[in-house]
């Protein structure tokens, strides 16, 4: 995941993310797992790999996120989690 210096436009692997989805910056995740605990659909899990900080980052299963946003509020890091809400055409 890369941000521009202003951070206004976000792309993942060069393409826009469509909600509902959760995007985790594995380099900023400290692996505390608080997001996993609060996630109602249970779509987050701890990864087995280590990030550059030495933590097991949390990863998104890739589907069934309902963009409730609870993981965002439970996460202590400002940039580790982005929740993308569904665009209108998905509603």
């Amino acid at each position: 995941m890369k941000r521009t210096s202003e951070g206004e436009i976000m792309t993942v692997a060069g393409s826009a993310v469509e909600g509902p989805a959760v995007v985790i910056d594995e380099d900023l995740c400290k692996g505390c797992g608080l997001c996993i605990d609060v996630c109602p659909p249970g779509v987050l899990r701890q990864d087995s790999k280590l990030n550059h900080l030495g933590f097991h980052p949390v990863a998104y299963l890739g589907k069934w996120c309902n963009a409730c946003g609870l993981c965002f509020f439970a996460c202590p890091e400002p940039g580790a989690i982005v929740v993308v809400k569904p665009s209108r055409r998905h509603r």
């Binding site: 941000r3 210096s5 206004e8 436009i9 993310v17 400002p78 982005v82 993308v84 209108r88």
Partner: peptide
């Protein structure tokens, strides 16, 4: 909240520095 392609987001609050 800023928006991005796809829909509204919950992300890095603007009142926190970006770096």
């Amino acid at each position: 909240m800023s928006t991005m392609t796809g829909g509204a987001v919950l992300q890095w609050p603007e009142s926190l520095y970006r770096t």
